[in-house]
Write a protein that binds this DNA or RNA. Structure first.
Lengths: 203, 203, 203, 203
DNA sequence: CATGAATGAGCTTTCATTCAT
DNA sequence: TATGAATGAAAGCTCATTCAT
């Protein structure tokens, strides 16, 4: 006599939501299963009913979080122009008020990747896919002659994704900065170039 | 007749070295004082003779690590041309074989900053100073007409520092990439601009 | 359906019983939580499930012990004549074979009161109440002209309670003495006076 | 080449003074050898030069403290009249401002006697001697017909010593009480008797 | 399915004691 | 003699995990 499949789904979501809220603010190892149980409103036993261990819960949360972001990105890619995509990437990815939680979660994700191989593999896959996707966009833009023909798609994809992560870090340590404005300006710099004509560039 | 004043220094260095080696590879909360004792070749009691608590040890390590990097940066700033500074920043900062340890340590530093306010404050100070220093360089370069006059020094400083952190992350998840080459190309992109003349840039 | 509400009570009693048995014989700081766990038949974790810390357990034990004694005293006060109350106080308070444990526990209670303010406050309250209760008895006895009209109830209450504690100490260092007999004789001395008519008493 | 015997004595006194000051206020097990070293102005190594262990230091302190009190008592016995002895015992024993420290030290002495047999034996000896000495006084007073002939010297000695300890306890929990006044009144009660002529005393 | 009491390995920290200097 | 750095056993406490109900 199995329960309706929806209960299980909703329970799992309930747990993952609580887990995200806890882990994002205090890190994977500082948060206890008791914390998650309390926040989720379930008992510790229930957590172990749906997830065999803390590690499994962590992995499931990371996967769910990555997939949700991926879906957001895909939607964005279908709905937005290349311009919007380039200039408003962070704006679309996280609602403004969620940036704090998500940037912290990123930090914990990077940190735990040094210890937990399953998580590292999953996150590596995410970066690989993002790089590929961004690379494809760049190739299209080059083909359309929007970008210079000599642009290396793979390198540029990396640069733009690195910029995003790096600005999250900058923002974490100085929340007075305007993340979106900084992003847009950085993208503009990149497109137009900041070197004067006088500059002899190293080869 | 007390022990040579250098003994204390050398013991502290011995402990911090062991601590760095442990923390960098496994994170602040996963590493135990026993681990550090074992690696340092001292007893647990000795650790507590020099540092009152694990938190104090962590903070001391973060400070020492930041200061060491700062010294390396300062030396580089004095010895290198603007060109070298821009294009070879990562190469100078860490010896190639140390990148792995240092990038992991960065991850743990970001992560622990979400929980430990003293560390966060210290790291925030580091970023502030780096931003200011980079900003000053940019202003000089603008004055020398090496960079376009409309370049915003603060924004660009952020962009370049963000790029560095972001590429460390990229490299962590794909160690096959050539970090130095990627950095140089990214800097070149930024200086020359990647947009074709056809491109209408958003304002 | 939660566990029977009595389980918690019975577990707490189980722990407090073990704690009393340990603390009474070896003092608060010499006894470890492991000791109490072993004696109670529970695990250390279970102790911490019911009491948040060793200090909390100590305070709870002191309170429970005081309250139990108070109940015994109240029962005695209702059931006994003034005579019995006066002459057989120790006999009623502790069963003969329990004197050793209880007198030791008293010693540890006094000692810990010099370090632990919460315990000191609780014990001070106990003494205040005992003094008041004994004082009330004395006033009644004076009113009934059983005691001389010039007797100061508060002072006499203190004297009789001090006698009890003091004799416990005497007995601890010389268990061959007959505590009950000594108590009765002391009370008799006090009632009849031991000074000869020749004695000129200081004013 | 031994040091002057006076240095050793003065060092030992220095250590015991520091130890008393520490132990009296915080109890034997809460005080660390570091505490005593700090307060004495000596190093931990010096402590262990003069006393082989913490237990040995504790025992030496107890012995020294008891002997000092005994000398004070003996002096008092030689210099004072029976009256003064009876009525002003506490006043002579400790200077008023020292009562707090000494009463606390008593508490710790009783407490540690439950765990440390050497200390217990030493304190038991003290009580035995005090009882004997007080008993001798009482016998004299009976012979002089100052006290009633039926007074049992041993019992009365115990009663008076118990009163002293007991009142110290009372005072600890209510420092507003006037210890000396309470003592004198208690002695007066005991000499004159507090029972009215109506009272039929149990046999 | 769900609960929460119970477990116990493992953590940080303390401290009596030792010993090279 | 005296110092204080170093040791390591043992303490209080935490928390992932289990399991009877």
């Amino acid at each position: 006599m199995t329960t309706s499949p929806n209960l299980e789904d909703s329970r799992r979501r309930q747990i993952l939501d609580a887990a995200f809220s806890c882990f994002a603010s205090r890190g994977f190892s500082s948060v206890t299963m008791d914390d998650i149980a309390r926040v989720s409103g379930l008992s510790k036993g229930a957590l172990y009913w749906y997830y065999k261990s803390k590690d499994e819960l962590i992995l499931a949360l990371c996967e769910a979080w990555i997939e949700k972001n991926d879906r957001a990105l895909m939607k964005m890619a279908q709905e937005c122009s290349l311009d919007q995509l380039l200039f408003d990437y962070p704006k679309y990815l996280f609602a403004q008020r969620e940036i704090a939680a998500h940037s912290k979660f990123f930090f914990h994700l990077w940190a735990i990747s040094t210890e937990n191989d399953e998580v590292k593999t999953r996150v590596a896959k995410m970066y690989r896919e993002h790089n590929e996707q961004a690379g494809a966009f760049v190739r299209t833009a080059v083909d359309l002659a929007i970008l210079k023909p000599e642009v290396d798609p793979e390198n540029f994809a990396r640069q733009i994704l690195a910029l995003f992560d790096g600005l999250l870090i900058q923002w974490h340590y100085d929340p007075t900065m305007d993340l979106s404005a900084n992003w847009s300006q950085s993208v503009r710099n990149l497109l137009e170039g900041i070197g004067s004509t006088k500059l002899q560039i190293q080869e």
